[in-house]
Design a protein around this nucleic acid. Structure first.
Lengths: 140, 140
DNA sequence: AACCAAATCACCCTTTCGGGTGAAGGTTTT
DNA sequence: AAAACCTTCACCCGAAAGGGTGATTTGGTT
């Protein structure tokens, strides 16, 4: 982060130097105003894109490839064991009926669990719930 | 994506209008050159940051950092570009209607694409298709 | 004993999904 | 030109999913 800011300062300094040089050329010679403005706009756009990239790249790494189950995370979101079992099967692509068969409960029960899951994970659909759960490292 | 580019164009147009206005003020009145340059630099930096953010936001959602997109895999399963776009949005938890809105096509079109996807991925449900696609390293 | 959270199930109703089929327009390949 | 493929869209219909509400049982806590 500090390095990014340092590099940003460096780039800024370089830009200003270049600008001053261009400014000199502008007033002494034949460079048109439009060209000058264009250069400035281009340079600062590039600079802005670069800064934007630098500042957001970090968020990419937040999530985990090597999954480690952590029960405290479940408590954090108030997800019970049974709900978690439903969530796991759900993420593997099973239908509610299949989940009901595997857990030896009725279809209605699975629906209740999944409804509660959606509330706790702030999801509207099961695919969204799965996505959320992965982001929260609840499931691999 | 198309929307981003469109908005970018719009923002650019607005900026240029503002620039022309400032340019007028500069030559007719009392605005200093430095001030003018500063405004331009600032505006285009902001624009650049915004564009940078827009272009990288997608990568923020990636769960598996060691994912490498490989087009040959898609060909292996006969998945077209459009179908792949649907698959991506699907895996992010969007409904068919939401996907249709994002891709600027009708709900029926999305259904067709997803049906074809299920055939090609040998899946019965969208959750299963997502699971399969991840196993096949088609999506992160 | 009283209380509470979890788990179970039911019923009703709406929305979303998914399968099947057909079709039109466009591009690429043969 | 014909064939093959992609993309787009439509209609119908049944299956699955999801929301809301209420009820019962059970195990653990107070």
């Amino acid at each position: 982060m500090k390095r990014t800011i340092f590099l940003y300062g460096l780039a800024l300094a370089a830009l200003i130097t270049l600008l001053k040089f261009l400014e000199y050329r502008l007033f002494v010679r034949d460079l048109s105003m439009e060209f000058y403005i264009g250069i400035i706009a281009l340079m600062f756009t590039v600079l802005g894109v670069w800064v934007g990239l630098k500042l957001t790249r970090k968020k990419t790494i937040i999530i985990n490839p090597n999954f480690q189950f952590d029960e405290s995370r479940l408590e954090k979101y108030g997800i019970s064991k049974r709900e978690y079992e439903v969530l796991e099967l759900m993420s593997k692509g099973h239908s509610n009926q299949e989940i009901a068969d595997k857990l030896f409960v009725s279809l209605n029960t699975v629906k209740t669990h999944s409804s509660n899951l959606f509330l706790k994970l702030e999801a509207k659909r099961r695919t969204q719930a799965i996505q959320r759960a992965k982001e929260l490292a609840l499931i691999p």
